[in-house]
Design a binder for these strands. Structure first.
Lengths: 189, 189
DNA sequence: TTTACTGTACCGTCTGGACGGTCTTGTCAA
DNA sequence: TTGACAAGACCGTCCAGACGGTACAGTAAA
């Protein structure tokens, strides 16, 4: 029963995310994470020698997962429209009722520098999209709107109804696919 | 030198925001705020009996200021286009290099419930805009994009260049000034 | 034997907050 | 005008508790 071997890391990471979501970002203590993960505090510190390392693990896992999801989504819908793929993927992410990354608040509270990897990731992503999208205006509007959706999900303050969210995503996809006139007035949805 | 009388509250609130921005949201301790505000800890606790009350004061002040700014902006540009007014106001807010509300992270870390007033405020704002905007699609896209801009500013991860931001705002204003104005029956309450 | 833990005991630091004291200002009777 | 007194605004100290982290002995699988 004892030695869980190997996958303790993942369990700890998941437990940390759970604790942050359920007990609030300020209550992410090592003790709480350890007991939630079914691991002793010693065991936790064995896998992550400091709290900062734990946070770092959270960030890296998040970025890795996201990049991977984006890659597979892009290869499935190959070459057609990377912006549209990004919109769909993000919209699906934000569909989840439970904010997937509320541990970010814990990380920021711990040390704002934990955001830098995320920032650079986002910057690279944006630059890539800029290179792959013909119309800058469309990109800006869509990217920012998705960022807004993400923000809402993160803060757990979903103002939109299901219909509205679907309409939004449809509008964004429309804007993303029509380079030039995004004055979508005449065409009914 | 001692008795600052009366405006200590404002000074403390400003100091708290400064500390949160400069020392990181996790380092917002009462001692730090007190020393920053040029007030003793006892004096701080006199004005705000608990840390929670301090946070509450921060939230209320923020909401009050924002509502006021929105009101004056709307009365200056009367009746024309509330969505456009909101866009312009928010864009100006986000122009500031220093995130105006990074104390929010402190508040969330302290207790996620501090977000509820902000959430309800945003919900009301959105509903109001919905009542005042003819085209739902335009509203959704613009509102979310602004939310994205806010998010970026808050996280201090500005991906956009100055030109890009201006182009974005221009695009949003263009979208906001939707061509069909018939649907606006009884916009006033 | 090594790896991967468990469990316990412990330490130093930091933090919110309670408490009692102090200075300032306003009020009002004499 | 003055002196007594109350209330308001603020200071400085102290403390219990929580937290991150260390140290170390034990244990079970590979």
């Amino acid at each position: 029963m004892r030695a869980q071997r190997r996958n303790s890391r993942e369990k700890i990471l998941a437990a940390a995310a759970d604790v942050a979501r359920e007990s609030g970002p300020g209550s992410l203590s090592l003790d709480a994470v350890a007991s939630r993960a079914g691991v002793s505090k010693g065991g936790l510190l064995y896998n992550f020698p400091t709290k900062a390392k734990l946070m770092q693990g959270l960030v890296e896992g998040y970025l890795r997962d996201f990049e991977q999801a984006l890659e597979t989504a892009n290869s499935n819908d190959d070459g057609k429209n990377p912006l549209a793929v990004y919109i769909r993927l993000s919209a699906d992410d934000c569909e989840e009722k439970r904010p997937s990354a509320s541990w970010i608040f814990s990380a920021i509270a711990e040390d704002p520098d934990f955001m830098t990897p995320i920032k650079t990731f986002k910057r690279q992503l944006f630059e890539r999209l800029k290179g792959e999208t013909s119309d800058l205006k469309s990109l800006l509007v869509c990217y920012l709107a998705i960022e807004g959706l993400r923000s809402m999900n993160l803060f757990d303050s979903d103002v939109l109804s299901k219909d509205e969210r679907e309409l939004l995503v449809a509008s964004l996809l429309e804007i993303a696919s029509s380079p030039d006139a995004h004055q979508a007035s005449g065409t009914q949805s």
